[in-house]
Design a protein around this nucleic acid. Structure first.
Lengths: 351, 351
DNA sequence: CTGTTAGCGCGTTCAT
DNA sequence: ATGAACGCGCTAACAG
C-alpha cells in the first residue's frame, strides 16, 4: 500500500497525500479529512527509505556502548548495571518522541568504522555514546565529520578545540565524590581509602578529585596506599579491596572506610572483604556511586551516590532529538545533580 | 561520497562500482582491484535507504520486548534480569553477522501498530519477540502479514493453525521444572510448594506441569495451598511466599521447599522469607529458574535451573537472519536444554 | 489550494 | 566486461 494507491482511492494526487501525511498547512480541510480517512483505513505508512532518500531524516538514533578493553565481559554488556538501565531509559524516551533506537556495542576500535557507516548510509540521524574515555579522538573525528552526537561523561573543556557542535551530559562527579567522602568523615572515619575508576574517563578522574579535595579540607592525610587503581569493573574492585586492606586482619591497617568510584567496584570490594572475614559495616564502611539496581539487593545493601541514570538518559535523548530536528548553534553541556542514598554498608565509627 | 564520485575517481561507471561493491562475478580482476582501492580510501558505503529502495533488504532486525501489564516497572525493562542479557546477546550475535538491532519496548497493545509500521516502511527485515503470552493474536497477525519473526516461549502446536512461517525458540521448560522438583525431592523434601509464573505464558504453564508431574511420580501429594499464582515479577514472588508460608512461624505449615518459576520471583520470595524471620536454606529451600546474573550475588546465592539465555538469543538471532536471507520452507522449532546449578539456597533436609 | 515534474542514490536490466 | 537508462516511493519546487 503506497501513496500512489492512497491517492487513487482518495481521488487526489500523490503530492496531496504526502502533504496530508506530513501535516502541511496548505491543504483544504475537506481533502485533508478525506485523505486521512483512507490513510487510517489502510494503515498507510510512507516507505521509510524512500522518505529518507527524498531528503527527510530517519527517525532512528543510535546508542553506542563502548566496551573496549573488557573482552572478558563480552556477553555481559547488557548485564552491566549501568549501561543496561541507561539504554532502556533512552529507548523509552526516544519512543515517546517518535524515534527508534538502534543499539551498537563497540568492542574494538575498528568498530568505530561501523558507526561511521551507519551515519554515512543514513541509517542513523544521531547518536549517544556511553562508556567513552575522555576526549576520545575517534569520537571527536565523528563530531568533526558533522554527525550529531551526545557524549556522556566528557570534559567540557575540549569542546572549543573541536570543529563542530556536540552535546555533553555528565553526572556531577566532583560534587558526588565530595559528598560521599564528607559523609564518611561525618560518620567519624578518618582513614578513608578510595578505589578509583578508570582515570582515563572523566568520571574516574573527577571522583578522585572530589575525594582528595574533601579529605584535604577536613585536614585528613591521604596516605599513598589509600588510593587503589580500579577500572570500574567488579573484578577490579575485588582486587583493589584486597590490596587496600592488607594487614587489616592483624590490626596493621587503619582503614575503616572506602569510597568506591562506582557500585560495581563496591560490590567487588564487598566480596573481597567478606572473604577476608571482615565485617561490613562494623569493620569497614563502604560507599559506592551510581545507585544501580543491584545495590539495594546485595547484603549489606549499599550506601551510594545517586545521579539518576534515568535522568541522564532522558536528558541525552531529548537533546539529541532536538539537535536532529532543530539543530544547535553551539555545543551544549548538561550536568545531572547527585544525591546521597543511605543504606547499610556504612556505619558511625564507635569511640 | 557516493557511487557517482567513486565511479569518476576510478574512471568507470556507477554500475561497475555497484558490481564491485556487491561482489559480482562479472568484473575483471584489474577494475575490481582499482575500484576497491578507491572504495577503501574514501571509506565508501552505499546509501542504505537508496539501497533498500532499489530492492535490497535492510540489514536491521528488531528485538521486541513485550512489557504489557507491568507499567509499574516501566523504566525497568532493561533492568529486567532476563530481557537485558537476552537483548545484549542478540545484538552481539547480529553484529557478527553484519546486522544491526533496533530495540522496541511494547508497553501497551497499541504499540503493535508501531511494529507493523517499522515493517511496512521497510526499516526492519525481521524481528524477535520476547516476553509474549502464548499464541498472542497480535503477533500471529504479523506472521500472517508475511513479516519474518522469531517468537520466544511459544507453544509449537499453534504453528499449523497459522498461515505463514515463523520460528519458535523455547527453553526446555518442562524438563527444567521437572529437574528442579526432583532435586528438592532428592534432598529429602516432601512438602514442596510452587510459585507459578504467568500461566498465560508457555513457560509459566509448562513449568507448572513439570512440577506437578514430578510430584506425582514421586508419590507426593500436591495440596491446594502449595501452588501460588505469581506473574514472573519479583513483587509477586514476595507476595506468594508470604501467602504460602502463612503459619510457618508457629509450625502450622509443613512446607520446606519452594520451586519458583523464575529467579526474579525467587528473589522476591527470599525477601519475604527473610522478613518472616525464617532462614534459608535451614527452614526453607528455594530453587529458581533462568540463572540470571543476580542469582549468584544475592545472599544466599540461589540454586536455579540454567537454560542459557545467551544460547537462546544466539539461536534466535542466527535463525531470523537465515530466514531473511534464505527464507524458510516451513515453521521451525528450537528447544534449548536445561541444567541444574547448585548454590546455597537449597539444603538437604535433616532427619 | 492542487497537480505535474524532477530528483534523491542505488541496483538492475538491456544493450554493446 | 562494461556503460546507459530505468524505476524503486517519496518529498519539494514549480506551475497553475
Amino acid at each position: 500500500m503506497y501513496s500512489k494507491d492512497i491517492a487513487k482511492l482518495a481521488g487526489v494526487s500523490r503530492s496531496t497525500v504526502s502533504r496530508v501525511f506530513n501535516n502541511y498547512p496548505n491543504v483544504s480541510v475537506e481533502t485533508k479529512e478525506k485523505v486521512n480517512r483512507i490513510i487510517k483505513k489502510y494503515n498507510y505508512v510512507p516507505h521509510g527509505p524512500a522518505r529518507t532518500l527524498a531528503g527527510k531524516h530517519n527517525k532512528v538514533i543510535g546508542v553506542f556502548i563502548i566496551n573496549v578493553d573488557h573482552k572478558d565481559e563480552k556477553f555481559n554488556v547488557f548485564r552491566n548495571t549501568y549501561f543496561s538501565p541507561f539504554t532502556g531509559a533512552a529507548i523509552d524516551c526516544a519512543d515517546k518522541l517518535g524515534y527508534n533506537v538502534l543499539v551498537v556495542v563497540i568492542d574494538k576500535n575498528s568498530d568505530f568504522r561501523k558507526i561511521r557507516e551507519l551515519f554515512n548510509n543514513k541509517t542513523l540521524s544521531g547518536g549517544i555514546f556511553i562508556g567513552a574515555l575522555n576526549s576520545p579522538p575517534k569520537i571527536l573525528e565523528l563530531v568533526e565529520s558533522g554527525y550529531k552526537l551526545v557524549i556522556i561523561d566528557q570534559d567540557q573543556n575540549y569542546q572549543s578545540k573541536v570543529k563542530g557542535n556536540y552535546i555533553i551530559v555528565n553526572s556531577n562527579n566532583f560534587e558526588g565524590a565530595y559528598t560521599a567522602t564528607k559523609y564518611l568523615i561525618e560518620l567519624g572515619h578518618h582513614n578513608i581509602a578510595h578505589i578509583c575508576g578508570d582515570i582515563k574517563k572523566l568520571s574516574g578522574s573527577e571522583r578522585l578529585k572530589g575525594y582528595k579535595r574533601k579529605m584535604n579540607e577536613a585536614g585528613l592525610k591521604i596516605k599513598k596506599h589509600y588510593i587503589a587503581n580500579g577500572d570500574f569493573t567488579e573484578n577490579s574492585g575485588y582486587r583493589c579491596a584486597k590490596e587496600l586492606l592488607k594487614g587489616k586482619n592483624n590490626n596493621k591497617n587503619k582503614i575503616t572506610g572506602i569510597f568506591c568510584s562506582n557500585d560495581a567496584m563496591a560490590i567487588g570490594a564487598i566480596k573481597a572483604i567478606t572473604e577476608m572475614k571482615l565485617r561490613i559495616p562494623d569493620d569497614i564502611s563502604i560507599i559506592g556511586y551510581d545507585d544501580t539496581e543491584i545495590s539495594s539487593y546485595i547484603s549489606p545493601s549499599l550506601t551510594t551516590i545517586r545521579s539518576s541514570i534515568l535522568k541522564m538518559a532522558s536528558v541525552a535523548t531529548r537533546n539529541i532529538i532536538d539537535f536532529i530536528e532543530n539543530g544547535i548553534e553551539s555545543s551544549k553541556f548538561h550536568v545531572i545533580p547527585t544525591e546521597l542514598i543511605e543504606r547499610s554498608s556504612t556505619k558511625k565509627l564507635e569511640n
